[in-house]
């Protein structure tokens, strides 16, 4: 699946998007997989309460299933307006 990062999550991980091969069943499982990769991922995902997630461009929860999801995006709380 495509995994996208925005704002300081993108900066901390060092790239805007990547293709991730994963068996993760939920968003939180995916976060656990990513945390194990490298320190920069562990740093970006240290506190998921400071993050938001979108599945196929719809806001979702971290316990949401990833069945059929093609695009996952992680980002900080939004500051529009």
């Amino acid at each position: 699946m495509d995994v996208l990062y925005f704002a300081w999550v993108r900066e901390r991980i060092g790239l805007p998007r990547e293709v991730v091969e994963t068996q993760a069943a939920t968003v939180m499982d995916l976060v656990e997989d990513l945390r194990k990769r490298e320190e920069r991922y562990a740093a970006a995902f240290a506190d998921v309460t400071a993050l938001r997630v979108a599945l196929d461009q719809q806001l979702a929860d971290f316990d949401a299933p990833l069945d059929g999801v093609r695009e996952v995006a992680f980002f900080p709380p939004m500051t529009g307006g």
Binding site: W8, A73, F75, M78, T79, G80
Partner: peptide, 19 residues
């Protein structure tokens, strides 16, 4: 718009940039 539209602001000053 402030909390549910995916925009992120960063302020740039002489000291650097901060989200």
């Amino acid at each position: 718009l402030k909390s549910r539209a995916p925009f992120w602001k960063r302020e740039v000053t002489a000291d650097g940039a901060e989200w």
